[in-house]
């Protein structure tokens, strides 16, 4: 569920005319937005047939392949930025994918739903149930999300792996939040690089 707010933040982190790879690019609307606003040369990776057609309709370059293995053949630092938008939580090999993103790209932009959002905490803490919300709209038994994590978890992950956090913004719904972001934030956006 991509909103314009996170589009605009991502666009503000992308240099004009840079070379961008969007992993799991969906219908290509983010790449279209980046092409229109930043004149990037963008490529998407997408394995879903209907989404592929929508990318073609959006006039963006899209490569049909598996997101987790599709970067293998790509050269080191062949992209300025590699984007993984609201998909990290649905990926099996989290570490490997982030590491590949930072091999193929000079920087990586990762956005994810914050499991630490207070309503999620209430659902699990008080109701004793797995959270269901606008940003996590699935039941436990049909969710594509295999790794749920919080803003704190991600920052700890970056520290352990030696990734530098170059930018962070947190949204609560469509608005930015800076007050206790791990509690009030629904969507976190990071720009990271190696070292």
């Amino acid at each position: 569920m991509i909103t314009r707010a996170d589009f605009d933040i991502i666009a503000s982190w992308v240099s004009p005319k840079s070379r961008v790879l969007d992993l799991g690019c969906g219908d290509g609307s983010l790449l279209r937005h980046l092409a229109d606003s930043k004149q990037v040369r963008g490529y998407g990776i997408e394995n879903d047939e209907p989404s592929l057609i929508k990318c073609i309709d959006n006039r963006v370059n899209v490569i049909q392949t598996n997101l987790e293995s599709g970067m293998k053949e790509m050269a080191d630092h062949s992209f300025d930025v590699v984007i993984l938008s609201q998909t990290l939580q649905a990926i099996k090999h989290t570490e490997a994918v982030v590491s590949e993103m930072l091999r193929v790209g000079r920087e990586a932009i990762v956005t994810f739903p914050n499991f630490g959002y207070w309503k999620h905490r209430l659902q699990i803490g008080l109701a004793g149930k797995m959270p269901v919300s606008d940003d996590l709209p699935y039941q436990w038994y049909d969710t594509p999300n295999v790794h749920l994590f919080t803003i704190h978890d991600f920052e700890e992950f970056c520290r352990h792996r030696g990734y530098r956090i170059n930018n962070r913004r947190v949204l609560s719904g469509d608005n930015e939040t800076t007050f206790l972001p791990n509690l009030t934030g629904t969507l976190a956006l990071y720009k990271i690089s190696v070292g």
Binding site: R19, L52, C55, N61, I63, M74, A75, S78
Partner: peptide, 21 residues
């Protein structure tokens, strides 16, 4: 076909690739 796609990617060309089931 992926060799062609990779070459076009490496050469910074506009390319779309569909692998049809």
């Amino acid at each position: 076909s992926r060799e062609i796609v990779k070459a076009l990617l490496d050469a910074d060309k506009d390319v779309t690739y569909a692998e049809i089931e």
